[in-house]
Design a protein around this nucleic acid. Structure first.
Lengths: 120, 120
DNA sequence: CGGTATCCTCGGAGATACTG
DNA sequence: CAGTATCTCCGAGGATACCG
């Protein structure tokens, strides 16, 4: 985890949400409680190590709640915290934006050729 | 750039926004046109290579517009596209959420100890 | 079952130098 | 000034094995 220069809140959230798994985990956890093994099944390509690591990161950030149940076999459940729940619609908004702007994003900048002007 | 399994829009945006620089560049570009060298000055720690690389990624995604001016010395300007402009408030919302929920995020899950229950 | 530790590898990212 | 190419290196992340 690389140190940040500034204390910019955007840098800080992105530090937590960056990468392939955080938002995916959010996505699966918004349906409700999931066990560790459930999350592995939801994301077949995540490695055992990465999953624990990313869940820990989200836990430390106060986005997910980890609950352990003693006994054998071991059992651990993950939920979104209230704060984490509030994050979900913001992530969804990003996904919506991505879809809605698809035409605009791929159109703009290809047809408009402002380039090749002479500078002083 | 790792391939995605699914075509989930959230995975796709995060692929573009993940990392340290994309949101920072968005932040600096929302003030208006910036030259390459301006952006280097804004982010003293980004390497020459990373900056071009990240700008290209944002350009391909249709978030920034790159305009070149022929002549010596070379001159290249970067702007947010209309679509990119629409992304800014969504990123800001994430930053706001991060600040607003700070207490909730750090409080929840430390005081509440649901753990240590017996399973069957 | 869930977590941690160890090892190993592969590619992301810096430094440097050259071109238009 | 902006971009690309080459080389290098460090560490993120996979595989494996063992513990509670």
């Amino acid at each position: 985890m690389k140190e940040l220069v500034s204390r910019c809140p955007i840098e800080e959230v992105m530090q937590v949400l960056s990468g392939r798994w955080p938002t995916l985990l959010l996505y699966y956890l918004k349906d409700g409680t999931k066990r560790f093994s459930d999350l592995r099944r939801d994301n077949p390509t995540v490695s055992h190590k990465m999953l624990t690591q990313e869940l820990r990161k989200l836990e430390k950030a106060g986005i997910v709640q980890r609950t352990t149940f003693e006994g054998y076999p071991l059992r651990v459940e993950y939920d979104l915290t209230p704060a984490g729940l509030g994050l979900v619609p913001l992530i969804d908004a990003l996904g919506d934006w991505w879809e809605e702007t698809e035409d605009a994003r791929l159109g703009t900048g290809r047809l408009i050729e402002r380039a090749v002007q002479a500078s002083t």
